[in-house]
């Protein structure tokens, strides 16, 4: 099957324009025979929202604009980043990722780790997600992460333990550090994690980052696909928009697990017991 990473530059605070952008890219990906299209974090809204958060929040089940995207996923799947507000939780805004396939919303992940330090202010404006779980999709078993979630490796571990064939991270990662090569120094951090997680979880890791500039901050791009075993299957340009399309074969998960027996020998129950003890000790 084919996966497409949509390394786009959304328009800040303009859901309508971004829905059009998403529909355009979906069509382009469909023409390229993609089975899955992954859009970046907060792709429907832009990242530096601040007080705009409540203005751009939507309920994916009922919002007419969102439903336009859902309706356009017949025959393929998409991951879409947006600000979520449910009728049952009015006034709570989540930085969320929706997995849509064949015209149906299959799963929503709410960002758990909201960076709030230095240039980041997410917990000032967003409510915190409280769960990581995998789910079945037409493109295999998937675990979703949003940006900073990925840098807390326990999150990927949960997806791995829950049987993910594919860990998908959507991101709006700003570039920092210009003392390195032909990319921001922080790009290396994401690639390192992608390589390590795909290696040791023997699963696919898809990372869709955005590009463009908001309020002087440049988003780094460099979206990538790692195949099981830490094999780089493709990386998009740094800084510039791109639709990165790569062939992936889920059989590679099995192949990698024949060679590396991490999954067979994994002991999540030992980890869980030990973690519970560590958490209890920290609380005492």
């Amino acid at each position: 099957m084919k996966v497409a990473l949509a390394q786009v530059s959304p328009r800040l605070g303009d859901v309508k324009a971004n829905v059009e952008l998403h529909l355009d890219v979906l069509e382009k990906a469909r023409r390229g025979k993609a089975d899955l299209v992954v859009f970046p974090e907060l792709g429907l809204t832009g990242y530096t929202l601040k007080d705009l958060v409540e203005e751009v929040a939507l309920d994916p089940d009922s919002d007419p604009l969102f439903r336009k995207i859902t309706a356009r996923t017949r025959g393929l799947a998409a991951v879409v980043g947006f600000v979520e507000e449910r009728p049952s939780e009015k006034g709570l805004f989540y930085n969320s990722a929706a997995f849509i396939a064949d015209g149906r919303l299959l799963h929503v992940h709410r960002k758990v780790y909201l960076p709030t330090n230095g240039m980041f202010e997410e917990a000032k404006f967003f409510a915190q997600g409280r769960d990581f779980r995998t789910f079945e999709t037409p493109v295999g078993r998937v675990g979703l992460l949003i940006c900073r979630d990925f840098l807390h490796y326990g999150a990927s571990y949960v997806h791995y333990s829950s049987g993910a064939d594919m860990i998908i991270c959507i991101s709006a990662a700003p570039g920092r550090g210009v003392g390195g090569g032909d990319a921001f120094e922080t790009s290396r951090m994401w690639e390192l994690m992608g390589e390590a997680m795909s290696y040791f979880s023997t699963a696919f890791v898809l990372y869709a980052n955005r590009v463009g500039i908001e309020d002087g901050v440049t988003f780094a791009g460099g979206s990538f696909v790692f195949a099981p075993g830490g094999r780089l299957a493709g990386r998009a340009a740094y800084l510039d928009p791109e639709l990165l399309v790569r062939q992936v074969d889920l059989a590679a998960v099995r192949e990698a697990r024949k060679k590396w027996l991490f999954k067979r020998d994994e002991k999540p129950e030992v980890i869980l017991r030990s973690l519970e003890r560590a958490v209890r000790a920290a609380e005492d």
């Binding site: 570039g175 210009v178 003392g179 390195g180 090569g181 032909d182 990319a183 463009g212 500039i213 002087g216 440049t218 800084l239």
Partner: peptide, 21 residues
């Protein structure tokens, strides 16, 4: 301060000026 990768910095700043204007 570390030595900068000047071609990369040029790339970023050129995009910044173009984007902002």
């Amino acid at each position: 301060p570390p030595k900068i990768n000047a071609p990369f910095v040029e790339k970023v700043l050129v995009r910044f000026i173009r984007d902002k204007l």
